[in-house]
Each structure stands twice: as structure tokens, then as C-alpha cells.
Amino acid sequence: MRAARVKTRSAPVRTCIGCRKQELAADLLRVVAQETAVVPDPQRRLPGRGAWLHPLSSCLAVAIKRRAFGRALRVSGHLDISALEHYVENRHEHS
């Protein structure tokens, strides 16, 4: 049992704020809040608190419905997610 636990720690695991499934961080898109906008951070370099999301329109829709961005990023008020929507749509077209 301990060997399995050590093996899972070798790669970071994060939870998608849309579907709530745990995945390797490499399979999820990091997003951050910049002022009043949620922006994608595919290189994982932007400063600030991050949240993780499958780069799929279905997970994005669930996250919007659940109002998960404000909670996960600890930001109150209306958040503009148009940049994130644009990123997910364009990524989906090229997949």
C-alpha cells in the first residue's frame, strides 16, 4: 500500500473545478484571476492563486453553472471568462 501512495505523489494531482475529477496536473489547464477576468495559464507561470480545469467545453459549462471560479480563485464579484471560453473553443477545434 505504501508503495502505491509514494508513486502517486511523484506527479502532482489536481481536481477539475468543473467535473470534480482528480487528474494529473499535466492533463488539466491552470486558470488564474487577473483583476476581474479569468485567464488560461497553459505554461503555469502566471502569479496568483490558480484553479484547475479540463480544457473541455463540458467542464467549463459545469464550472460556470456551479459558479466555481469565484470560489476556487477566492475572488468575489463578477468574473469575465470570455478569454477562457475563447481558449477552450480554439483548443477544441484544433484537437
Rank of each mutant, 00 (worst) to 15 (best):
V32C: 11
V32G: 12
V32Y: 12
A33W: 02
A33H: 04
Q34A: 12
Q34I: 12
E35Q: 11
E35K: 09
E35I: 03
T36C: 06
T36E: 15
T36I: 01
A37L: 01
V38F: 00
V38M: 00
V39M: 00
V39H: 01
V39E: 00
P40H: 15
P40G: 13
P40N: 13
P40F: 15
P40R: 13
P40S: 14
D41S: 05
D41N: 05
P42Y: 15
P42Q: 14
P42L: 13
Q43N: 12
Q43D: 15
R44K: 14
R45F: 05
L46S: 04
L46D: 02
L46F: 04
P47Q: 12
P47I: 02
P47V: 06
G48H: 10
G48V: 07
R49S: 09
G50I: 03
G50K: 03
A51L: 12
A51T: 10
W52T: 03
W52D: 04
L53K: 13
L53P: 06
L53T: 14
L53S: 10
L53M: 12
H54D: 11
H54A: 11
P55C: 09
L56N: 11
L56K: 14
L56V: 10
L56W: 11
L56C: 09
L56G: 13
S57M: 10
S57H: 14
S58W: 06
S58M: 07
S58T: 11
C59F: 05
L60R: 09
L60M: 11
L60V: 07
L60Q: 07
L60C: 09
A61K: 13
A61M: 05
A61D: 15
A63K: 02
I64R: 05
I64F: 00
R66N: 12
R67S: 10
R67C: 08
R67N: 12
R67G: 10
A68T: 01
A68C: 05
A68G: 05
F69T: 00
F69D: 00
F69L: 02
G70R: 06
G70M: 04
R71P: 00
R71F: 01
A72D: 01
A72H: 01
A72S: 13
A72Y: 00
L73N: 05
L73H: 06
R74Q: 14
R74N: 12
V75L: 06
V75D: 03
V75H: 09
V75R: 15
G77A: 10
G77R: 06
G77W: 05
G77T: 06
H78G: 06
L79N: 03
L79K: 02
L79S: 03
D80S: 07
D80M: 04
I81R: 06
I81D: 03
S82Y: 03
S82G: 07
A83T: 02
A83D: 04
A83K: 04
L84E: 00
L84Q: 00
L84C: 01
E85R: 13
E85Q: 14
E85D: 07
H86T: 08
H86E: 14
Y87G: 01
Y87N: 03
Y87I: 02
Y87W: 15
V88E: 03
V88H: 03
N90H: 15
N90I: 01
N90G: 10
R91D: 06
R91Q: 09
R91T: 08
R91Y: 11
H92C: 06
H92A: 13
H92V: 08
E93N: 10
E93I: 08
E93A: 12
